[in-house]
């Protein structure tokens, strides 16, 4: 038969190869056209579980800030009271002076009346003198006022300087606190990483669960004891978290920490376990 040249091998090879490439092409086409809408469901983004701990350093800072604000407020109030008191005092002084003046004048007037007849000639002189005295008095009063103003300005200046000095010292404290805060952050992230590596979550773990543990540590990095502060409600989850802390065992990385920072932040600290990447 003419149809089967060389027993039909060339034709069959051709047919088989084309069939396979067709199937492959069809599969590829289906994949590429279907991938976009399937993708979102099939491939949820993996988020590493995050351990969140309550940072004592941050809390301390907040407290300090609050105290500082309160102190500042007190100071300002005291200053205002002082000023008010000084003002009233001055007022009183001035009033007294004015009173004395008036009395003197009255006396003088009486004298003048008595002496009017006697010293009619001397009246003009007297008047002159009076005028001079009044002038002097005015000058005196003006001087006093100026002095007062000067004093006020100086006091304000002093207060301003005081405030500036305070602000400077505050910003320095903030600077120190920030570096300390960073140090604490880096150390606590080390602790987090270690605990997280040793943390294998039970299948009953759910996304909303939170377990808080209080850990007591000594400067060598040894964990003294672990106490549960807030249970997640799932005993398996709690024990898994506790096991993670115990398995992390000694935090050798914390040994080089300055003692004061350790005492403030890591002698006892809270560690919160919260799975956030679970699918269910």
């Amino acid at each position: 038969m003419k149809m089967i040249v060389y027993n039909g091998y060339p034709l069959s090879v051709f047919v088989a190869v084309t069939m396979h490439s067709l199937v492959l092409a069809g599969l590829l086409y289906l994949q590429t056209s279907r991938t976009p809408d399937v993708l979102d469901i099939v491939q949820p983004a993996i988020v590493k579980a995050i351990l969140i701990n309550e940072n004592p350093q941050l809390r301390n800072e907040e407290l300090l800030e609050q105290q500082r604000l309160i102190r500042l407020d007190d100071q300002r109030q005291a200053q205002a009271a002082e000023q008010r008191r000084q003002q009233t005092e001055e007022e009183q002084q001035r009033r007294q002076q004015a009173e004395a003046q008036r009395q003197k004048e009255q006396e003088r007037e009486q004298e003048v009346q008595q002496q009017e007849e006697r010293q009619a000639v001397a009246r003009r002189e007297q008047q002159e003198k009076e005028r001079r005295e009044a002038q002097l008095l005015r000058k005196q009063r003006e001087e006093q006022e100026q002095r007062q103003r000067e004093e006020q300005r100086q006091r304000e200046l002093a207060a301003e300087q005081q405030r500036q000095r305070e602000a400077a010292s505050n910003s320095a404290a903030v600077e120190v606190a920030r570096t300390e805060y960073e140090l604490v952050q880096s150390y606590s992230s080390i602790v987090h990483d270690l605990v997280q590596q040793n943390w294998s979550r039970p299948p009953s773990a759910r996304n909303g669960m939170t377990a808080v543990f209080r850990i007591r540590m000594v400067p060598t990095g040894d964990v003294l004891d672990v106490a549960i502060v807030k249970s997640s409600g799932d005993p398996a989850f709690d024990s898994a978290a506790e096991r993670a802390i115990h398995r992390s065992g000694t935090f050798r990385e914390l040994q080089g920490m300055p003692t004061n920072i350790f005492n403030e932040n890591f002698r006892t600290f809270l560690l919160t376990f919260r799975p956030e990447d679970l699918l269910n």
Partner: peptide, 11 residues
């Protein structure tokens, strides 16, 4: 195997 299938079919 597909080569064989087609070739046998022709035969």
């Amino acid at each position: 195997s597909w080569v064989m299938i087609v070739q046998r079919w022709l035969v």
